[in-house]
Design a protein around this nucleic acid. Structure first.
Lengths: 249, 249
DNA sequence: AAAATAGTGTCTCTTAGACACTATTCC
DNA sequence: GGAATAGTGTCTAAGAGACACTATTTT
């Protein structure tokens, strides 16, 4: 049973509390497309949006979650089995109408999952209730529960923005990767081609990757494999990929 | 009296809800220093942190606040009388220990106030309970209630970061300003000098300001006055003020 | 004329992008 | 050798910083 640690506040404070949840937009590159992990809500007609696709997330459990971040990590771990994925706070959404049960606010996070572990996620207990939905244009095609479409759009926008000047896509490739694979990932997220020479100069001079003594073989010249130097923080570049002059006009 | 719209959820959901608040870090340049507006908490010993300085903010009123943003705007208006200041979501902080009353989460915003209206704020009803605290280094000297020092530090970091590549300081100057005044504001926020020539080129080519047919007089050549073209959105520059090479060493 | 600040011009350096070129593997 | 991808070099253009220069006001 859950505890009622705050029950007395109802009286003490003399007013109502909003519902509070945590939701996570989990990104990965699946089949060469930027994708978001969705969970199907259960069929209980007493709950809002039965059988609809939604972001992984749910109520904070004040008995076991020490903090918002802990709650997000718990939900990430429950759905993906991962404990060390990139996780960043995205923002919060709260109003009187987003949840039919009452005034509700959610703390949204976004996470980036390496390409080589995405396959293991769907093979969980109830595989039919989990799917990777492709990002098409700047949104998902599915209609999600609550205001989750809006949250996903904000996450896509944040991701695309940051990819212009950070090394975030390095969290979306496999543990070992070639520079071409990393460039391909940047291109998938951004939705446009990048110049090979400029890309390599930027990545190598930022010193965020490290050669490993192995090569990716193929029907061509083998490519040097790299790993990330730091698994924790993204690198911030001092210029965007796109200079002002080609933006304006 | 406040309503109890969510009362039934207590039973339906079968678990406890965290306390939910909204807090705002209100920045302005006062006496040539970056400053944050603080409110003194009341003396009621039944409430946490009596008589301590804290960020303006408080509980969401589910009866009158339609959304988090509305709640932030209401609190901003209550404390400053302003309805059109720059307001941006900063992030959320939530854990079991930040509020002695129980598991609590706050949605933090930050706001930028024009220099020419900061004077009117302290002359409100209870002036002694309001003050502008200078930012010294990367924090405030005061010890604030709850985890508000932490929130202020995050706000300072966010502001400084964005000032490197956006026009945010344009919201901190008076309605009409000279380029030198705007540059001075950038320098105050960043805590370092900028080159005049490069600064002017950047601001003018971004086309975010507009000449007005007036000049700022002084014991020297009069300076052209400008206004912001758009009062809403900051401009994003494609390069930071500081290039990589001078960072890396 | 001196003081003071406004505003401009010149030069260098860094780095993105375009694009052509060389390198190394499999077939 | 041909196909394919890896990886490099060269040139140009944009924009930041350093810094010297000119401009226009008050005193």
């Amino acid at each position: 049973m859950t505890t009622y640690a705050n029950s007395k506040n109802k009286k003490t404070l003399g007013f109502d509390l909003p519902l509070t949840t945590v939701d996570i937009v989990i990104f990965a590159v699946v089949n060469e497309q930027l994708s978001v992990l969705l969970i199907k809500r259960n069929s209980d007609a007493n709950e809002p949006y039965p059988d609809q696709w939604a972001l992984p997330g749910g109520f904070i459990n004040v008995a076991i979650d020490k903090s918002l971040q802990d709650c997000a990590l718990r939900k990430l771990s429950e759905k993906t089995g991962l404990n060390n994925a990139y996780l960043e706070q995205l923002g919060s959404w709260g109003n009187s109408s987003r949840d039919p049960r009452g005034w509700s606010s959610t703390h949204a996070y976004f996470s980036l999952i390496a390409a080589d572990v995405t396959g293991t996620i769907q093979s969980g207990a109830n595989a039919v209730d989990v799917k990777w939905a492709n990002v098409v244009g700047d949104k998902l095609k599915d209609t999600l529960a609550f205001d989750h479409n809006q949250i996903v759009c904000a996450a896509i926008e944040r991701l695309r923005n940051k990819v212009e000047y950070t090394s975030l896509p390095a969290f979306l490739v496999s543990k070992e990767f070639t520079l071409s694979e990393l460039q391909k990932t940047y291109e998938i997220v951004l939705g446009r081609k990048l110049d090979k020479s400029a890309f390599r100069t930027r990545i190598l001079s930022a010193k965020l990757v490290e050669e490993v003594p192995r090569y990716r073989a193929g029907s061509n010249r083998p490519a040097q494999l790299y790993t990330l130097k730091s698994l924790l923080d993204p690198v911030i570049f001092q210029r965007t990929f796109k200079p002002l002059s080609s933006n304006s006009k």
